[in-house]
Amino acid sequence: MISIKNLTKIYRTPIRGKHFVTDLFNHHYKKITALDQVSFEIGQNELIGFIGPNGAGKTTTLKILSGILYPTSGDAKVLGFTPFDKKPAFLKQIGFVMGQRNQLIWDLPAVDTFVLNKEIYDVSDQDYQKNIDDLISILNCRDVIDKPVKTLSLGQRMKMELIATLLHRPKLIFFDEPTIGLDIFSQEAVRKFIKTYQKEFKSTIILTSHYLEDVKRLAKRLLIINQGKILYDDDLKTILEKFGGGKYVTVMLEKGVDQNLLTKIGAPITNQFPKVVYRVKRSDIPQTINLINQLLPYSDLTVEDERIEEIIKKLFGK
């Protein structure tokens, strides 16, 4: 469905000189490599989590894949099309949700944008009604579609944005930070929506987010990008096995114990009574638990994988 090879995008940005008057006559630019020989493939019905720090190249990749930006070099094929050709047959099959942008007409009810998109995407009256009903029912937002957009909360606007983008049932959807700025309830609603939508309509989805929770909850495959290069492209589970060197053992103590006793098990990474946390190699888990049973009075004991946030931090550190 998506195949990109050696995709490179270089932005040219002006450099401010020492004096604003001489700047008018001497233009200097610097080149910023947003994508550097990026290659990957994505198959049908996949839901990909695409993460990286600010300026890593996530949004640039999505914009090239959707035909908004022209790549400096490399090949991109999406649904059999070259995106920048902007063929209507291609654009009708994609949808782009941008968390920080909106397509809704500010002064008018969201339903006016839906009607406009119905014409833009050549959706039949029958399909329009069915798709709108389906989306409204998943998002539970029937009462807001007739209210002017400017009167809606951010969460409600995002729901309207999702309907506007998806009412033509795109095969491929780009979600660029769809939960940014939303409260935890709205974030949860958007996550739930994406999961339900993908399950029901078998779309291919690429999701970028700063909230790792979004990716952990939704994606099976993870693409990690930093400084324009792909650092990781594999299953979400595999990253834990490959790069997660250990597990976290959390002990909730019943009563205070001597520090020497605690260090007999290992050096705790957190020690705030009653909570003590150890980072332990996978192979040492049985031995550590035995020791804890013998030495510590505890009310609760949990063993967790290393947090994905930590693993990704380590990857970026490389």
Partner: peptide, 9 residues
């Protein structure tokens, strides 16, 4: 916002 215009058929 021009991005959203460019992404439409």
């Amino acid at each position: 916002e021009f991005d959203l215009t460019l992404a439409k058929p």
